[in-house]
Structure formats: structure tokens, C-alpha cells
Design a protein around this nucleic acid. Structure first.
Length: 200
DNA sequence: AACCGGATTTCCT
DNA sequence: GGAAATCCGGTTT
């Protein structure tokens, strides 16, 4: 697979919702140990910062973990959930702590290496249809925290966004976020089965 | 230093 | 559909 052109900073400086929608169908690329891993993004969620109770930066909460959210767009926000690493990309202007969570991919390239990392065959729709599953398949870890996601080794690239059917639903797994848990800020490609759940 | 709970995954009934 | 697994940052003692 030839080198792909990375989405640049201007893409991530759109509103967080636009980034979340815009990433559906795009490629996530990781150049790892000489192998290029590519996944087509099928599911994202927008986390809208200080007013969003589901967001780690709600109420301007600022800790060692969330510090990167307050930096410039395009930075990598990884954090640990139970035993898993979850991948987010920071959006909006510096000081406006918003991000998009990448929740699912379909394997496109480097599939053999992805299977090795994931420890499962890629043939099932369960292969990378969850935020913890895709980081494992793509070899993304907490070591990537804070990295700029607009250049190798880890970046986004144009995919077949135009063939995606964008469907908005409620976000997953955020009970305790009150009214914010009802916002339709999860986006999936309605044409893909490789998503974590359908529930519109 | 102890305790708590989570933007999850997997296995079991 | 439910519960265990299992880890770390953040909060409380």
C-alpha cells in the first residue's frame, strides 16, 4: 500500500461534531515496525468539552490525564479504560478541551499484522468494532499520548468517506452523564456492520 | 496509603 | 443478559 496523505491541522480545527462526522469512512494509518496498518473508520463519538457531562474535561476539569485536551487540535488523547487503551483526537482551538473518540474500524491493510496484534482472525465483524479492540489491532498504546496525529507514524488519511451513510445515535457507555447521555453525538457508517452497536 | 469507579471486553449461564 | 477480569488516575483518608 502506497503512502497516504495525512489529513492536516485544518481538518481537526472544524467543530468537533464535524470532525466526528467527517472521520467516518476516513482511514486511520499506523506505520509500525516497517508495516503500514490501515483501518477504515466506521464509528466515532464527539465529546464537547466543558459543558458535556460525559466529557473528561467537563467543568474545566484539568488533571494530568486530561491536560492534552487543552492543547492544539490534532493531538492524541489516549487513556486507559479498565485494561484497554482508547484513542481520541483533540479538536477545536487551544484551551477548548474537546475531542473525538475513535470507536471502530474495518481492517484495510496490514491485516496479517493486525491479526497478530489482536490475537484473532479479521473475518468477524467483531474484529475491531470497539474502542479497545481497534487500538489493540492497530498497535496503539499509552506511549502515543500527546503525539501529533497529522504526520507519521500515526495519522489519518482520506478514505471513501463519500460512500459512507452517516447515522447519528446516542453515545455508548456514559450513564451518569444526565441529559448529556441523550445527545446524538455518536456517528456510524450505516453501510458497515463493523460497529459496536446499532441501537439508533 | 487506601479506595473507587470507569467513553470495555470476554466469558459464562 | 450478567458478571468477572483487571488497571490506573483521581480523590479521599
Amino acid at each position: 500500500m502506497e503512502q497516504q496523505k495525512a489529513l492536516d491541522l485544518s481538518f481537526f480545527e472544524q467543530s468537533t461534531i464535524e470532525v466526528a462526522k467527517g472521520l467516518i469512512g476516513m482511514h486511520l494509518v499506523h506505520e509500525l515496525d516497517g508495516v503500514t496498518l490501515i483501518g477504515r473508520i466506521t464509528e466515532t463519538e464527539a465529546y464537547l468539552g466543558v459543558l458535556d457531562r460525559a466529557c473528561h474535561s467537563y467543568g474545566r476539569r484539568r488533571t494530568k490525564r486530561t491536560a492534552i485536551l487543552y492543547e492544539e487540535a490534532g493531538r492524541c488523547y489516549t487513556y486507559t479504560m479498565h485494561t484497554h487503551c482508547l484513542l481520541n483526537v483533540v479538536c477545536e482551538q487551544k484551551g477548548q478541551p474537546e475531542a473525538v473518540l475513535i470507536r471502530a474500524i474495518e481492517p484495510i491493510s496490514g491485516v496479517k499484522e493486525m491479526e497478530r496484534l489482536r490475537g484473532k482472525p479479521h473475518t468477524s465483524r467483531e474484529f475491531a468494532n470497539g474502542p479497545g479492540k481497534l487500538t489493540k489491532a492497530m498497535g496503539i498504546t499509552m506511549a502515543d499520548y500527546g503525539r501529533l496525529l497529522t504526520e507519521p507514524p500515526l495519522y489519518f488519511a482520506k478514505g471513501d468517506h463519500t460512500n459512507a451513510s452517516i447515522v447519528a445515535t446516542k453515545r455508548i457507555g456514559i450513564k451518569g452523564a444526565g441529559p448529556c447521555s441523550h445527545h446524538p453525538w455518536r456517528f456510524i457508517d450505516g453501510n458497515s456492520r463493523a460497529v459496536s452497536a446499532y441501537r439508533p
